[in-house]
Design a protein around this nucleic acid. Structure first.
Lengths: 234, 234
DNA sequence: CGTATTTTTGAAGCGATTCAATGGACGTGG
DNA sequence: CCACGTCCATTGAATCGCTTCAAAAATACG
């Protein structure tokens, strides 16, 4: 729990466009937290006191439904924030945040952040844009879930993950997350079995290359075609 | 397009806790818009210039998917805002807003509202809470759509609508919206046929009373039991 | 009344789930 | 470096929930 460097904040979406003085002020109020792989930043249904911006590592956000099913809500990469919505709404955390690797985050509690927003109106505007963007994402995902079939949802999810954390390789784009079929199933609202079958089919067609916790997209355009429901060949 | 009365703003979530001076300032910047039933406040994919707070009437928010399917996102009742997220994010409207009755709304454009937020920090905080709440709703709905069966989703949707616009009657609680089976289907991500069958089953069991564009909940606890997946009898 | 909209119902079909069981990959310790 | 145990992925077969299409019935409305 040490004091973070103000310069490092500048790279984060949430703090874009703030001047040096504001940055100092905000950084002074932050608390650094370092976690090992598998440790939790916070747990679902705890009172939401503090939100974080991820500096290093990766974080998995999961939610457990009342009847015990688990859902992967999203992954957080360095520079992104998590928990902000719950803190601002003054609720409990609606999901759990687990470090997938050794991770470092900066945290602020609600009252502190509100004070900061009052002092720096630009911060409030940025927060709003970010949260608004989050609404868009969820809305899009909602529409997907209610109108699209599983294969398409999986295609979309892989493409999204590719944008978020894909690295080019000689044979395609690799998704840089240790994703199990179970994870993909929990993100798309289906089962491990179906994911396995779908991926097997795509592998057959040469669209992807998949192994244990490893997915490489060999033909992104084919995946886009599936996601957008275009005729496969043209 | 006349000037709204500041006192009327006080009842709205968005402006709760603001003092009279602030209210005057905000009201002075608002534009009133009056629509007949069937007219649109705005259309999906127009540039989002202005958001509204509904003063009177009811508004249906719908979204059309790329492949032409329609989804009912939610209904807006007096006192609620709509379009805020799109305006703050500076995007196009992700959905269309249609007046179901003759409706009255107050509107603000983005730059104006940002200026107002800078002058009244309390307004920024309130906006954030509201948008945050919206995120929660969508997140909950996401979880529903990805893990629950149709019957449960319909039960939940009816309960939600009951909370939003239900009126007590001798024989139960009536949903005060002219809801077609099609509307319910579009809210729950299913088909007219399935909705009809499910409602018929519930009517059979005495849980609801339904007619053309009319649904009355006779046994809310039974519906809750279905929504929560509890054993029906106890 | 006649017409349009909304709702219901039947029957067929399919996509996805479920369960059970096998097969493969990885890490660890001997 | 091999052998073992564990976790992860695959596959087949049975089943089911829901959709789809077609058509009729009910309700509202001018």
């Amino acid at each position: 729990m040490s004091r973070p460097m103000p310069e490092r904040l500048a790279v984060f979406d949430l703090f874009a466009g703030l001047d040096a003085a504001a940055m100092d002020d905000i950084a002074a109020a932050a608390v650094e937290r370092r976690l090992d792989a598998g440790e939790m930043f916070f747990l679902q249904s705890e009172r939401a006191e503090r939100f974080f911006v991820l500096v290093d590592g990766r974080v998995r956000l999961t939610q457990v439904t009342p009847d015990g099913q688990q859902v992967v809500v999203r992954f957080i990469m360095p520079g992104e924030g998590f928990g902000l919505v719950a803190v601002l709404a003054g609720n409990v955390y609606p999901l759990s945040a687990e470090a997938m690797d050794p991770a470092v985050g900066y945290g602020w509690d609600g009252p502190t952040f509100k004070t900061l927003m009052a002092r720096h109106p630009e911060l409030a505007t940025r927060s709003l844009s970010l949260v608004a963007q989050r609404v868009h994402e969820f809305q899009a995902r909602n529409r997907e879930l209610s109108t699209e079939r599983v294969e398409r949802r999986i295609a979309r999810t892989l493409l999204r993950l590719t944008n978020q954390s894909g690295t080019r390789q000689s044979d395609g784009v690799r998704i840089d997350l240790p994703l199990t079929r179970q994870d993909v199933a929990e993100m798309t609202g289906t089962t491990v079995y179906t994911v396995s079958r779908v991926l097997a089919g795509w592998h057959e067609a040469g669209i992807i290359d998949a192994g244990r916790k490893r997915i490489v997209i060999r033909q992104p355009h084919s995946l886009v075609a599936i996601a957008e429901d275009l005729p496969p060949a043209r």
